[in-house]
Design a protein around this nucleic acid. Structure first.
Lengths: 250, 250
DNA sequence: CGCTGTATTGACCTCCTTCAAATGCGGTGG
DNA sequence: CCACCGCATTTGAAGGAGGTCAATACAGCG
């Protein structure tokens, strides 16, 4: 069946399916929502902090991030957008986005028409539910990040981030035998985990020499997911993913 | 007019009015939503992390907080719930709350009936919009907290938190000439700002001797809001409050 | 093959934590 | 009113995790 095959390859559908069972019709409707796609190069700005969000978007391929910059130039990346993640425009709710949104790698971005989205939500209960779930997950990830950056040591913090990314990518089928594309520089990684890139480097080295990961040529491979998770007290419940789809083995 | 007077004294309505203009009928509907009230003592648990959220609630008086606890016992308070703040149950979306919810002071809590809420959202566009605004603000506050805790020095971090609380309390009319009730112990404050209570103490002292605040007997007074804000690069746009209601003078 | 951005490493420093003790304060019972 | 208790605050001294600065190595790319 075409829709089923589509659901498997489309990270947007795969992700939302963790939040609500979607009927074939709902899948088709969601696919229709992402018809308007464009490719965006790496390190491009999609949303500027002090301006209203133009419209919603879905990341279909590649990584992007939300970030804030202080007056002294320091940057904090508040959350990562991985394939399947949504950024909803808060239509008319505020003139101020509150954060920047930038691509990290080359991305395929779908623009979402607010009216069309509203119509889908009204018409399809599964879609409404899946979108509520999505925003629940986003908030939950933010709270975990706050805890992670605030309360864990640098090496655990990094390990925890890697575990989270592994789980999220696995949830959309982007992990191949523990390995996946890794577009983040060590500067980026420092801005996510609230450290300096120098210290990130030392922590990466630590995880490497512990035999937990391989990171080279923009590719990350998790060698021992279980030991990595145990080392940093990673418990994936906060991601609210459907069970069986976050475990190391499928 | 009764409703107007009610809107002034009810922090729930006052807060939501920042997100959307509410008609008299919508105000009345929202007041009806909070009919079932109860008083809860300080330091009581309202939601447990590993259990589903029983139902939504509104904080009408007092302060509460969402927090996460690591296995080693360290705690991170991820966000504060001040009068007027809402905690929506994610009805059936997950079996796992993802965080604890506890009172800090004695609180008046209104329980929200999910069905009644859904009916209101469907019926009243202003209510629907105000609630979307509320969740936008919650997310925005989380991102600012991540930036604050991750990138600002301890003293600025504390100053920024005080500025935020001042602005949020002012938005619901709970500030009297720069002063307001302050139920947080220095331990709590450490858990919010990701420091130890010992260091919190030193930073409080710094703000005190700088003539910026007075903190004694569970009451905080901001002596010079402008200088405090300038000292920590506090820019209130991220709170998405209606203009004119965050400024020091009314 | 040189250029540019990223990664790596070392030496030094500091902000914050840790540990421990003292002080203060609100409530309670005598 | 005072003695006492429990809890929060305050302060000091010492240590450590992570930051800063700067030099070097490396990889991709025209």
């Amino acid at each position: 069946m075409i829709l089923r095959a589509c659901a498997v390859s489309n990270p947007f559908l795969r992700r939302l399916a963790h939040g609500a069972p979607l009927t074939a019709a709902e899948c088709a409707a969601l696919v229709g929502l992402t018809r308007s796609q464009r490719s965006v190069g790496p390190r491009r700005s999609l949303v500027v902090e002090a301006e209203p969000v133009p419209r919603g978007l879905v990341v279909l391929e590649g990584w992007a991030c939300r970030s804030k910059v202080l007056r002294d130039g320091q940057r904090q990346i508040t959350d990562l957008l991985l394939p399947g993640d949504i950024h909803l425009q808060h239509a008319g709710l505020s003139e101020h986005a509150g954060h920047a949104l930038d691509t990290l790698s080359t991305c395929t971005i779908a623009e979402i028409d607010p009216g069309q989205l509203a119509a889908l939500i009204e018409r399809w209960p599964g879609v409404a539910r899946a979108l509520r779930w999505s925003s629940l997950q986003t908030e939950s990830i933010l709270r975990e990040a706050l805890t992670n950056n605030g309360r864990r040591s640098a090496s655990r913090r990094l390990a925890h981030l890697i575990c989270e990314i592994l789980a999220r990518l696995r949830a959309v089928g982007m992990v191949d035998d523990g390995g996946f594309a890794w577009p983040l520089t060590q500067d980026d990684l420092g801005d996510v985990t609230s450290m300096t890139s120098v210290h990130v480097n030392r922590m990466v080295k630590e995880l490497r020499t512990a035999g937990l990961i391989v990171l080279a040529r923009r590719r990350m491979t998790v060698l021992d997911a279980e030991r990595l998770a145990a080392s940093c007290d990673f418990r994936p419940e906060y991601l609210h993913l459907a069970p069986g789809r976050t475990a190391p083995a499928e």
